[in-house]
Design a protein around this nucleic acid. Structure first.
Length: 492
RNA sequence: GGUGCCAUAGCCAAGUGGUAAGGCAGUGGUCUGCAAAACCACCAUUCCCCAGUUCAAAUCUGGGUGGCACCUCCA
């Protein structure tokens, strides 16, 4: 193991087994969850684009301290609460174009595997039982700390937690916790209890991908201790040549340079984001950055009149991303209208070949999505150029445009973007902007009708006056060969 | 105290030894009754600073400066 970018060679040619740490569902999913899910979903899609068959496993940690705590606060059954928020999570992620995992294992349905693994660790003398708890003995696993670059001595020196003196070493962590009143429990060789955090991932990777598999992903924050402990558990049980062959950790999202935290009031739920700017805008924003980088995210509190209480929030970075996304859909719509459904694409044009090649190279080099985005922009410009052209072979132009639209969508699919129907996307976007600006649509339509009448009468002074009035409302009037349309200005 | 990450134009953002992708904003132009969109052109002799290695450095090494994260629940 080394902590650098390395060449990827799957265990089985053409196939990738991938495990991603999923949610602990105890509250609505927030944008950080989405950010992580989108990162690894993009990697999954990119691998598929590159021709791999991917088996994608993402767990749900449905037995955990936070769930139990929250359930007790609400007087709800912990398992029911976890199931409820897990369903919400999947619904939210779907809005960001995150594909459902092939397998979504849960702790609650893998208790026998977890118990068997703990027994194996005890048999290997890597773990010890005390009063119904079972702990992992970190000092008996020599490579401990390899992933995070920490040593047990360093960890001990910086320990900020109270040490439980039943543990042999402060770094030891619980594999099994004896049941306390009001907690869900299962029978085990150590009495009634439940799994600790970390052990489920070791048990479930083995159950669904085998003792050794290709990729393991999760948020940067999970490197230590979660992933370090997973390694200790799995390799402690099955040998040091097992478990994940490659690790990937996504960077975190910050807001104005500040980390997201509940106390700062900058935790935004997924549905709030998707309602405000559309799910695809967040997706688009994410793939404009490299998955490893921390990403800063601009939000602005809305205070009516410039002071007083905060009544809302504007997601400036995402609004801007949505403006960029709109350009793609506008062009795709133009192409669709011009070309129709059954266009013969003909031989591949150079621009399309270049887009596909750049996408392959970019994604093959540590999933460099921004490179692919740049290539999409180049292709978009070329498509617009062809749409503007009025001279030359019309059939050839149509074939080229059909190819470009297909390639934009195909490469877009590798990033999880551009899958929507352009008309539907554009209508939804306008609806959002109408709602945000509290536009009076009947009034807008009345003004548009007035302007049309003035134009028909060649009263351009009157027509321009109406345009100015509409602009004052935030409406742009678009005269096109197909008639007059309107959009809502979204200059920020 | 320990372990890492980051610093590229007004802004966002790729690029890890071969002479700075892409986007947004801006400026000029084409098109348009006027607009918008689109298109065309322009827009970093330079990559936080200093020293070093090299024929060659944004990229490597050493030393600074500034920012961030993890070591405790966190995506």
């Amino acid at each position: 193991m080394h902590r650098a970018k390395v060449a990827f060679e799957p265990l089985a040619p053409g196939e990738v087994g991938m495990y991603v740490c999923g949610p602990t569902p105890y509250a609505p999913a927030h944008i950080g969850h989405a950010f992580s899910a989108i990162s690894f979903d993009t990697i999954r899609r990119a691998l598929q684009f590159l021709g791999y068959r991917v088996r994608y496993v993402r767990n749900v940690t449905d037995v955990e301290d936070k769930i139990i705590k929250r359930a007790n606060e609400l007087g709800e059954d912990p398992m029911a609460l976890a199931a409820r928020f897990a369903a919400d999570y999947n619904r939210d992620m779907a809005r960001f174009g995150v594909m459902a995992p092939d397998v979504e294992p849960k702790v609650s349905t893998h208790i026998p595997e977890i118990i068997a693994l703990i027994e194996k660790l005890i048999a290997n003398e890597r773990a010890y039982a005390v009063d119904g708890d079972v702990y992992y003995a970190c000092e008996r696993f020599a490579p401990y700390g390899k992933l995070s670059g920490q040593s047990l001595e360093d960890l001990r020196a910086g320990a900020r937690v109270e040490v439980d003196e039943r543990k042999q070493s402060p770094a030891d962590f619980a594999l099994w916790k004896a049941a306390k009143p009001g907690e869900p429990w299962w029978e085990s060789p150590w009495g009634k209890g439940r799994p600790g955090w970390h052990i489920e991932c070791s048990a479930m990777t083995t159950a669904h991908l085998g003792v050794t598999f290709d990729l393991h992903g999760g948020g940067k924050d999970l490197i230590f201790p979660h992933h370090e402990n997973e390694i200790a558990q799995s390799q402690g049980a099955y040998g040091e040549d097992t478990f994940a062959r490659h690790w990937m950790h996504n960077g975190f999202l910050n807001f104005g340079g500040v980390k997201m935290s509940k106390s700062l009031g900058n935790v935004f739920n997924c549905d709030q984001i998707a309602d405000a700017v559309g799910g695809e805008a967040l997706r688009f924003f994410c793939v404009e950055h490299h998955y490893r980088s921390p990403v800063d995210f601009e939000v602005e509190e809305v205070r009516p009149g410039g002071e007083g209480a905060v009544t809302g929030v504007r997601f400036r970075s995402l609004e801007a991303a949505d403006r960029r996304l709109e350009k793609f859909y506008v062009t795709l719509q133009k192409i669709d209208r011009l070309v129709g459904a059954n266009a013969d694409p003909g031989a591949e044009i150079t621009e399309v070949a270049q887009l596909r090649a750049t996408a392959r190279e970019g994604l093959a080099d540590d999933f460099n999505a921004p490179i692919v985005m740049a290539a999409l922009h180049v292709a978009l410009t070329h498509a617009n150029r062809l749409l503007d052209e009025t001279k030359g072979d019309k059939a050839l132009r149509k074939r080229s445009l059909a190819q470009l639209a297909a390639a934009l969508r195909e490469v877009g699919a590798a990033l999880g973007i551009l899958a929507d129907d352009p008309a539907r996307y554009l209508a939804a976007r306008r609806d959002r902007l109408v709602a945000r600006n509290r536009l009076d649509v009947p009034r807008v339509e009345q003004l548009l009708a007035d302007r049309a009448a003035a134009r028909a009468a060649k009263d351009f002074t009157r027509a321009d006056a109406v345009r100015t009035e509409l602009a004052g409302l935030g409406v742009s009037v678009l005269d096109t060969p197909a008639g007059t349309d309107w959009t809502v200005q979204d200059a920020g």
